[in-house]
């Protein structure tokens, strides 16, 4: 098994992260979080807890009000740090003008791959995600499940060290969810650090080595599923979640 042990730095370190949106909403305030390299880390919280804000800050998609974001010790403002992150967003956001193959190749290109490498890698990802029959089909003509698979394939295209999955199984059927779990598990087994946000508690319990609970932009607790159950005196993660959210 390959483990990302190249860096002694945590895969992700957020220090004093604060984000106030233009309308005045304070999404996260003085938020600290460290995700160890090679971890499978879950971020749980209700809608509006600040999960997507945290992810957007890590991926250079929002203007951070204050604080520091480090990826394997590199500030997120550096190109190197950004090249290490792969993001699959909650909403399907595929380029409508590109086919499956082009989506992967161009993404690889944006992230620094040369043509030959990108083409070769795209073919591998098409096979890995069972999209061969849709290779030359543009994104709007794919089914929901195929789009979701392509979104994940795109996130992994440039071989990121830290993969961020923002509710990757939201709104997908049971079979596809199981399938995506297999992909994600395999990815983690190969040593990639994974940061997962999800509303499905059983998903977090099933997949994550460590879970952080957040609400109103604040970290409530972080531990393994067993540790959280013990801490909250709960029998399952759903009880943990209810008790933790009630504490706020």
């Amino acid at each position: 098994m390959y483990r990302d042990t190249e860096s002694s730095q945590p895969a992700l370190a957020l220090r004093g992260l604060t984000k106030r949106y233009d309308d005045g909403t304070l999404a996260v305030e003085n938020f600290d979080l460290e995700v160890p390299a090679g971890a499978f880390f879950g971020l749980l919280g209700p809608n509006g807890a600040g999960k997507t804000t945290v992810i957007s800050a890590v991926c250079n998609l929002i203007r951070v009000t204050a604080g520091e974001v480090l990826v394997f010790g590199e500030p997120i403002t550096s190109l190197q740090a950004r090249s290490w992150i792969g993001l699959a967003e909650q909403d399907i956001n595929l380029d409508r003008f590109l086919s499956v193959r082009e989506t992967l190749i161009y993404h690889g290109g944006y992230f620094g791959m040369g043509r030959e490498e990108a083409e070769q890698r795209a073919e591998q990802m098409i096979d890995a995600f069972n999209l061969r029959s849709k290779r030359d089909v543009v994104a709007p003509k794919l089914s929901g499940g195929q789009r979701r698979r392509l979104l994940l394939a795109r996130a992994l295209m440039h071989r990121p060290r830290l993969v961020i999955l923002d509710e990757p199984t939201a709104g997908v059927d049971y079979e596809l969810r199981q399938e995506l779990w297999l992909y994600i598990r395999q990815l983690h087994a190969e040593g990639t650090t994974i940061l997962l946000t999800t509303h499905y508690l059983e998903e977090a319990e099933e997949l994550c080595e460590e879970i952080a609970l957040i609400r109103d932009g604040k970290l409530l607790a972080r531990d393994s599923a067993d540790g959280l159950r013990e801490h909250y005196g709960a029998t399952n993660l759903a009880d943990v979640y209810v008790k933790a959210m009630a504490e706020v």
Partner: peptide, 30 residues
């Protein structure tokens, strides 16, 4: 589910590349 294929990393056993990124390649692709 049993038809899910291996990810390329597992096949090749390769670690992610760590080359210096300048953004020039990305600009050309964009």
């Amino acid at each position: 589910i049993d038809r899910v294929r291996c990810l390329p990393e597992r096949r090749s056993g390769c670690a992610p590349p760590r080359g210096q990124i300048t953004g020039a390649q990305g600009m050309r692709w964009l």
